[in-house]
Design a protein around this nucleic acid. Sequence first.
DNA 1: GCTTACTTTATACACTGTATAGAGTAGCCT
DNA 2: AGGCTACTCTATACAGTGTATAAAGTAAGC
Lengths: 260, 260
Amino acid sequence: MAAKESNSSGAGDPARTLELLWRDGSAAPAGRRGPRQGLTVDAVVDAALALADGGGLDALTMRAVAQELGVTPMTLYTYVPGKAELLDLMLDAVFLRMDRPPFGPDEPWRTRVTAIADANRALFPRHPWLVELRIVRAPLGPGVMNKYEYELAAFEGLGLDDVARDSALTYVLGFVQSGARAELDARAVERESAMSDGEWWDAHEPLLARALDESRFPLATRVGEAAAIAYNGLYDAAHAYRFGLARVLDGLAALGARAE
Amino acid sequence: MAAKESNSSGAGDPARTLELLWRDGSAAPAGRRGPRQGLTVDAVVDAALALADGGGLDALTMRAVAQELGVTPMTLYTYVPGKAELLDLMLDAVFLRMDRPPFGPDEPWRTRVTAIADANRALFPRHPWLVELRIVRAPLGPGVMNKYEYELAAFEGLGLDDVARDSALTYVLGFVQSGARAELDARAVERESAMSDGEWWDAHEPLLARALDESRFPLATRVGEAAAIAYNGLYDAAHAYRFGLARVLDGLAALGARAE
DNA sequence: GCTTACTTTATACACTGTATAGAGTAGCCT
DNA sequence: AGGCTACTCTATACAGTGTATAAAGTAAGC
């Protein structure tokens, strides 16, 4: 099997993956021949998390994880079937460690949904690789399950049936992830280009006579300038989140009203 | 400068990039020394588009583009400064070729916004690489400018000020892109794993006693099953789009009402 | 003490974007 | 005409990826 660098999750042998996801840390490996293993799956996952948290998926190479742990790259393959499964384990671990404060019984749904949106948004600065990952067929480990259970409860009282509740959660999480991705992309470009948005604009603007032609693009030039002033730059992630979340909640409120 | 494979846009020398974006196809290259160029920038961009449209960014390698055009890889670098700039040109070309039927003067804003959402959604099946690309500091070429001008007009009559109009457009486009990404990710995983969602589920379900424990995860198991039945699978992109777009429009309507 | 299962290591492959250096071509000036 | 020079195009090279494969080392069970 070739490399392909797909950064996807949900590949590989299901039984082995699920066994790893629900593994017991306590496992006493009694009666196995050969040398005892010098590491644990948890150690591998933690080392991988440290690398990816610090430098994104680019920094997460099997060679780097191995070096971090003081072994050669191929050693990792006795703990984990491959990189795809390692990503599954990392994702479930992050979800498992999320804080899940219980909802008050008469907390309004807007507060609860805002809370889960905020909690998900808070994930990304700490784990920037989450926006690079294709999360399809989420690994059904303890982290994923607990998170899903908890977040579905946020929609209690909105008057949605089960299918609409799942759709609503997908919708909210999609919104949060979309904004986080835009924000992290913007920050990555600033870092890689060693140029702030302001510097980039200053470099381009003198050359942009054709693009910024007010007679050809009256709306674009006017609105673009107003937005640039209001955002104090090309893109204001915090503003986009506030604006979008208010729209999301209003949209859900309209759905709830219709359902009643 | 090392490779890094960042698939970003908005890098490189601004003047050169802008010159390429606003290039004249008609350019008579009179009075240049040395052999005449055997290709054109347009030919390079078209070859790159054909490759990326067919096989995503994985298929878009400088070597493949060169082979398609019957030259050696390094030849491309006389037409285009590098891969990042090539991606900028591809993106602007795609936007430039979008259909932009004029809006009727008393067409309601919901119809217009739905139209631009649909048009953007329609981009992705044809150009799957659009979801893989980090679009930051969009290349300010003719395609980007015309698209922005056109799409801003869709919000006429909603009663938004300029800043809110830009935010609303960003919000709508983010929603569409987010859904398209999820859909294409799902399809890519089906292809790469050579396993449909149904087969994947059949492989996992017998092993999932712990995950699907109804007493530990009552909501998750109930809602998950209802959704799986309703979607006829793990994920129904068309359903998510319909659901989400209705929520987006309702959210914008609430904003408009507030602004009036 | 031999077999056997296991852990760990070393090497190898095909592929990426592009820096660098060189070979070949043709317009311009004397 | 002949040389300079700007230009196009080619060949080679580098450091890096995930992991297949094969070999070397280790310890439990008979």
